[in-house]
């Protein structure tokens, strides 16, 4: 454990590297998934095609994707951009389905009333559907955040510095404390980002504040509701 005390700087640096690698994919996948998910929700035909093809992305093992991507995209083999693109793809794969399902969960009556009081289809989407789907989107984004942070460690195998570098280095040198430090720091970082998203959700969707726990973490027993 002495390794951890004498290498605090290193752990902090790798944490920052990790943050730079994982935050853009989380935000990008949200921004990209919005139009795709909306499109999937709008037409029956597009739903099957879009959800089917993004679901495919999900099955791609991460390691070869990180390596093949530069060949396809034309970036440098050890550019952090490869990792960001790959992680964004995984995020989109997850988020599109969430957006589509979230929008689908908006009550049809509510949408029809909105149309009835004169909302255009565009403003109805932004002002009615999206806010109502907000809690579901947030729940999905939280899963994206946690899995992105976890997945970014694999980049270490192809030479992109992250908290995963502590695994490969600890593995080579046989320092278990270093591997444990890497795992713990990854989990902590994921939980911190998750917490930030929850706070952001409360800030942007104040109307869910009271009921948010019910929507995000559906509970039915009285004991759990009052927790």
């Amino acid at each position: 454990m002495t390794w951890i005390w004498s290498n605090g700087d290193l752990i902090w640096d790798r944490t920052l590297d990790h943050l730079v690698l994982s935050v853009p994919p989380i935000l990008l996948s949200f921004l990209l998934a919005l139009p795709l998910g909306a499109l999937a929700n709008r037409y029956r035909a597009s739903r099957g095609v879009i959800l089917g093809s993004v679901g495919l992305l999900y099955a791609i093992p991460s390691l070869p994707l990180f390596i093949v991507l530069p060949v396809i995209v034309g970036t440098s083999a050890r550019s952090p951009l490869n990792l960001i693109i790959a992680l964004t793809l995984y995020g989109v794969a997850l988020m599109v389905r969430v957006v589509a399902d979230g929008l689908a969960s908006v009550d049809r009556d509510v949408r029809q009333s909105a149309a009835g009081v004169g909302f255009s289809s565009w403003s109805e989407f932004w002002q009615v559907e999206l806010p109502l789907a907000g809690p579901v989107l947030l729940a999905g984004l939280r899963v994206v955040a946690v899995s992105t942070v976890s997945l970014a460690t694999v980049g270490a195998v192809i030479g992109v510095q992250s908290l995963g570098s502590l695994f490969t280095d600890g593995f080579q040198r046989g320092i278990q404390a270093e591997i444990i430090a890497g795992i713990v720091a990854t989990v902590v970082l994921a939980l911190v980002l998750d917490g930030v998203l929850v706070l952001l959700g409360r800030l942007l969707m104040p109307w869910t504040r009271k009921s948010s726990s019910r929507v995000l973490l559906p509970v039915v027993t009285p004991a759990a509701v009052t927790r």
């Binding site: 730079v20 690698l21 935000l27 990008l28 440098s76 550019s79 951009l81 960001i84």
Partner: peptide, 11 residues
């Protein structure tokens, strides 16, 4: 996104 992507891609 722009800011972070900027950092990250500053090869």
């Amino acid at each position: 996104v722009v800011a972070l992507a900027g950092c990250a891609t500053g090869d």
